Computed example of a mutant assay.
Amino acid sequence: MTEFLDGPLGRRIAYNRLPGDGPGVVFLGGFKSDMQGTKAVFLEDWARARGQAFLRFDYSGHGESSGNFEAGCIGDWLADAAVAIEALTEGPQVLVGSSMGGWISLLLARALPERVAGLVTVAAAPDFTERGFWPGFSDLERAKLMREGRILRPSDYGEPYVITRRLIEDGRDHLVMAAPLNLPFPVRFLQGTADRDVPVAWASDLLAHAQGEDMRLLLVKGADHRFSTDECLGLIASAVEEVLERT
């Protein structure tokens, strides 16, 4: 059953929560995705079967939460996630971050280290506004973005993305690949080799950049960005179970 939390600056955050054993598991979705996605629902079913505490939620401007997607940025969605974890969970959590959620989870590890027991990412996209969007724009697109505050970019997932100047500029204030990144807990990075949104090189770069004693990268040949086949979902569950066993 969907419930609502009063979040930052009056934003209403929609969430689904399961009581259960800890450490709890928190799913962090991707850019313009929501908590009804295949991976989020699969993990809730997995957690229910195990009796594991679990939380999934929608960032502001996503899914059932309040707000306009175009008005949001990484800092806003990080604040939403931090408030949800602080208000709706107890003790350290295992974060499962998909795509942009991988970036958010890394920022949470930096901002709330005492609340993170472990980390699993799926096609993590840290710094994607600066490493993906910005260099992919033409000079004309960059000029239009700075002048008008927004441009449209095609998407493989439906309507074109609206990319705003605020999203780009705020992203520069939340980069994790330009400064030391300490992850002192079990970490598992999952990445498909056929991902057209997040290059495999980004996963290798993240593994090389982050500091931690229990960190592994699993590459799945032929898996795409959705990473939602039965096999891929099973790999996510196995990675979360492995992290839980090591916490």
Rank of each mutant, 00 (worst) to 15 (best):
V25K: 08
V120N: 09
I13D: 04
C73T: 01
V116T: 06
P186Y: 01
G192A: 04
Y59G: 12
I104F: 10
T2Q: 00
A71S: 15
V243D: 05
A194N: 01
E213N: 09
S204V: 07
P113K: 09
L18H: 08
L9R: 14
L9V: 00
V198M: 07
V162M: 13
S99A: 04
L207S: 10
A203S: 14
Y15C: 07
H225V: 08
P92H: 00
V116E: 07
I104N: 06
L219Y: 14
E64A: 09
S99C: 04
D34W: 07
W202H: 14
V187N: 09
D34G: 12
T2I: 08
Q36E: 03
V120F: 09
L233D: 12
G7F: 00
V243T: 06
G222H: 13
I85M: 11
D139T: 03
L233F: 08
A143T: 10
F227N: 10
R166E: 15
D127C: 10
A87K: 08
E148K: 07
F227M: 09
N16R: 14
F69N: 14
V243R: 07
G63S: 12
L112M: 14
L152D: 15
D173T: 10
R48K: 15
I104W: 07
S238G: 15
V243A: 05
S98Q: 06
D45K: 15
M177Q: 11
D195K: 06
A40I: 08
I168P: 03
W103S: 07
Q36I: 01
A84C: 03
T121Q: 00
R226C: 02
M35I: 11
